[in-house]
C-alpha cells in the first residue's frame, strides 16, 4: 500500500505544488500554518479539486486530471479525522458511528457495540457530542471513521484542539489505535514532535511547495536544506566556509568545527539542535568558551541563549535538562560547550 501524489492547485497568495511517493504506511506532512498542508489533505479526500495532477491511493487512481478521473469523496474509501472532529451534533454517539458504516443500509448492532468497546465509548452511546469531553469526541470520531474500514486515513492536526495531560493520554491511545490499523495513514501537523512520534516518513511543506521528503529520523538527523532544518525546529545555524573534507569554519559563530560527515562543495550552512550541545570541562576540538546572554525557563529544561567570543550578531540556543524546579540556572555552568561532530547538520540553502 502506498500513497502517490503529484498535484498543483492555485490558491490565494500561492500555488500549492505537492509531490511525493510514500514507501511506508505512516506518512506525515509537516508545515507551518498556511503552508497548504490541510489543503493537500482535502485534495486527497476529494473535498477540494486540484487544478491538475494525479492522486493514487494504494494502487487506485482517485484523481487524474489528464484521464479525467475524479472520484467523489465517498468513493475514495478514505477516513478523514477533522480538526474539530465534525461529529453530527444532533445524533448520539451510536447514531454517529452508524453513519460511518459502509456495508449496507443498517450496521449490525454487534458491530457497533464492538467499536464502542474498542474506542472506550461504552456507556456513552446515547450521549450527544456536546456532552462529551474532547478526548471522548476524538474517540467517537475515530470509531465513526474506522467502522467504514477505510483504506487510507487522513488525520488533520488531530491534537491541536487538546492540551496538556489529555493530549499526552490521547497521543498514547492514538498510537495504540493506529497499531491495530493495517491501512495507510497520512497525518498533517505543525508539531515536529507529533510528526516524529507518528510518522515514519515525512514531507516538509513550505509556502505550498514540497521542501523535502524522506525517512523521519533521517530527516531530523540530516534535513539537507536550511529551511528544512528550521521547519524541524532547529534554531542554531551558521554560514560556513569549507576548510577540508571533514572541517569547516562557521562564519556566524566564529569557530572551526570538525564534522562526522563529509563536507560537500555545495554545502552552505551548518546547524545543530540545542539539545545536542553538551557542557565540557576542558577546551578541545569543537569546544567553545561561552557566556549566557539570555535565559528562558521552561518546565523541564533550561534554555540559554549563549555567545562565544567569536560571535557577533548570532547566538546559540542551548537546551539543558534541569535537575529540579528550584535549580539555579546560573550555578554549575560548565566553562565550555561541546558541539558533537556527529550532530552537526550540513545544509544547502
Amino acid at each position: 500500500m502506498a500513497i502517490s501524489i503529484d498535484i498543483e492547485k492555485k490558491l490565494k497568495g500561492f500555488t500549492l505544488k505537492v509531490k511525493f511517493d510514500s514507501g511506508t504506511s505512516r506518512v506525515g506532512i509537516l508545515g507551518a500554518s498556511g503552508s497548504g498542508k490541510s489543503m493537500t489533505l482535502r485534495c486527497i479526500a476529494g473535498i477540494e479539486k486540484p487544478d491538475r495532477g494525479r492522486i493514487v491511493l494504494g494502487g487506485r487512481t482517485v484523481f487524474d486530471s489528464e484521464k479525467k478521473i475524479d472520484l467523489k469523496p465517498r468513493e475514495r474509501r478514505i477516513g478523514y479525522l477533522f480538526q474539530n472532529y465534525a461529529l453530527f451534533p444532533t445524533m448520539t454517539v451510536k447514531e454517529n458511528i452508524r453513519c460511518g458504516f459502509r456495508g449496507g443500509r443498517k450496521a449490525p448492532e454487534e458491530l457497533i457495540a464492538d467499536y464502542l468497546k474498542r474506542y472506550q465509548l461504552e456507556g456513552l452511546e446515547d450521549h450527544y457530542p456536546s456532552q462529551l469531553s474532547g478526548g471522548q469526541q476524538q474517540r467517537a470520531a475515530l470509531a465513526r471513521m474506522m467502522i467504514g474500514e477505510p483504506e487510507v486515513i487522513l488525520l488533520d492536526e488531530p491534537f491541536s484542539a487538546l492540551d496538556g495531560y489529555l493530549k499526552d493520554v490521547l497521543q498514547k491511545d492514538m498510537q495504540r489505535f493506529l497499531g491495530d490499523y493495517s491501512g495507510d495513514m497520512l497525518m498533517v501537523t505543525h508539531s515536529r514532535d507529533e510528526a516524529f512520534r507518528f510518522c515514519r516518513e515525512l514531507m516538509l511543506l513550505k509556502d505550498g511547495k514540497t521542501l523535502t521528503y524522506g525517512d523521519t529520523r533521517e530527516l531530523f538527523e540530516q534535513p539537507g536544506l536550511l529551511e528544512a532544518s528550521r521547519l524541524t525546529g532547529c534554531k542554531n545555524n551558521s554560514r560556513i566556509e569549507r576548510l577540508g573534507e571533514y572541517e569547516i569554519f562557521a562564519l556566524d559563530w566564529g569557530i572551526s568545527l570538525r564534522t562526522a560527515r563529509k563536507v560537500e562543495d555545495d554545502m552552505t550552512h551548518v546547524a545543530i539542535r540545542g539539545h545536542w550541545i553538551r557542557g565540557a570541562e576542558q577546551n578541545g576540538e569543537n569546544c567553545i568558551p561561552f557566556h549566557a546572554v539570555e535565559y528562558v525557563e521552561t518546565t523541564f529544561e533550561h534554555q540559554y541563549l549563549i555567545k562565544s567570543p567569536g560571535m557577533e550578531d548570532s547566538v546559540l540556543w542551548w537546551m539543558r535538562p534541569r535537575n529540579g524546579f528550584h535549580e539555579d540556572p546560573e550555578k554549575n555552568l560548565p566553562p565550555y560547550l561541546y558541539l558533537p561532530p556527529e550532530h552537526l547538520m550540513l545544509l544547502k540553502s
Partner: peptide, 23 residues
C-alpha cells in the same frame, strides 16, 4: 465540515441533507 465528514464517510448527499443538515 459536517457535510465533508458525511461525504468521506460514504453517506449519500440525500442522506446527509435530511439526517445531518436539516436537524
Amino acid at each position: 465540515n459536517l457535510i465533508y465528514a458525511g461525504q468521506t464517510l460514504g453517506m449519500s448527499d440525500f442522506r446527509i441533507f435530511w439526517k445531518v443538515i436539516i436537524p
